[in-house]
Amino acid sequence: MKEVLNQLVNFGFLQSVFLLLIFLVPAKKEKNINSYMLILIMITLMGLIGKIVYNSGIYGSNFRFIAFSEFSALLFGPTIYLFTESILHKTKYTHSNLFHYVPGVAYSLFIVVYFIIPSDAIILSRIKTGELQRVIYACHAVGLLVNITYWFKGFKVFVNFEKEMKKEASFEVHIHFMRNFLFLTGFCLLVWTVLFVTSFFGFPMLERNARPYIWILLTLIILFITYYLMLQPQVLRSIPEIKSKKYHQSKLSIEDMEILKVKLDKLMLEKKPYLNNKLLKKELAELLGINGPELARLLNENVGMNFFEYINYFRIKEFVNLAKTEKGKQLTFYGLAQEAGFNSKTTFNKSFKKLMGVSPSVYFNQKI
């Protein structure tokens, strides 16, 4: 089993080197390399190097190489957060964001001073008194605290982005990469936490024996990134840039809002902008002759829906009307949904059931 774990770590190391080369020697047309993805790969690579050298036995089974791997321990969380922020909000790398790595740098300096520089005699003395084990537990606790805090910050960014997209876009943005990425890294932190907690309940050897699996999880992160970059190289650039603005300073009167509501209803019936399956709020606002925040106010105060719900409401109505035509009888439900402006089967099914209370098949069976 140990040999299998070591081989997986080696494989993860080779994958990270391969990805690093892809990032550092990009094709001329690939200029928009995400800096935090690059940092994440280098951090993972750094964490795996110490483990590989230790396993190789080239310099003997010197525990200091394992300590070297700890340099990356507090760097994952901040990078996960900054990577999530940069992908979803289109923010670029700035030197000011380096302050998020201060805890990781301080931790690495402590590892050097306490674990790597001291002689073997000093380390053995600390082992006998139990001091070394207590310090290791303290290091694990600090690592968990920092990384979990930053993971939740990244997860909060993701959740808020999903909510914001409902206000700005009429379609469901494909952010499965970020959802899966956060799930995988969150699972790593969960396993780390479980291993840490078990050591306080009389199972110290269980924690020690299970530590190699942490390296397997790091390997899985590398494989996960490789999978997406190879099969979906456009995934990091497919999320639209949307900057939402508040409408609390809108100067439109109640009468103005009523007039706009009538104008909007007419626009939706005559021009059917909802048939554009990539319709954005700012585009509909331009057709109406107002700005995005004013349209958001109109929908919230005079319609009672957000932009996503409002547009898909009209698409569902279009779908039902199309289903009654001769052409509609020749198409599948999803084919009709595409004709009505939907670009996702999942979004269509969810929207239909939310509005009609039942699935499309049940609805039409009831009608028949």
Rank of each mutant, 00 (worst) to 15 (best):
E3K: 06
N10W: 14
N10M: 12
G12A: 10
G12P: 00
G12E: 02
L14A: 11
K29D: 05
N34F: 09
G50T: 02
N55C: 01
S56A: 15
S61D: 11
S61I: 00
F65C: 03
S69N: 09
E70I: 01
E70S: 01
L75I: 00
T79Y: 08
E85D: 14
E85R: 15
S86C: 03
K90E: 04
G104S: 02
G104T: 05
G104M: 06
L109M: 14
I111E: 07
V112I: 15
Y114N: 04
G130R: 08
L132T: 03
I136C: 04
A138H: 03
C139G: 06
L144C: 05
L145C: 06
V146L: 09
T149Q: 08
F152L: 12
K153H: 07
K156W: 11
F158C: 01
N160E: 13
F161T: 10
H176N: 14
H176R: 15
N180H: 10
L182F: 05
F183H: 11
T185K: 08
G186I: 04
G186N: 10
T193C: 06
F196C: 02
V197S: 07
T198M: 11
G202L: 06
A210W: 07
P212G: 11
L229W: 09
Q234Y: 14
K245W: 11
L252I: 01
L267K: 10
E270T: 06
K271P: 00
K271T: 00
P273M: 10
N277Y: 08
K282E: 14
N291E: 11
F308D: 12
F319M: 04
Y334C: 00
G335R: 04
L336D: 01
E339Y: 06
G341Y: 10
S344G: 03
P360C: 12
V362W: 11
F364W: 14
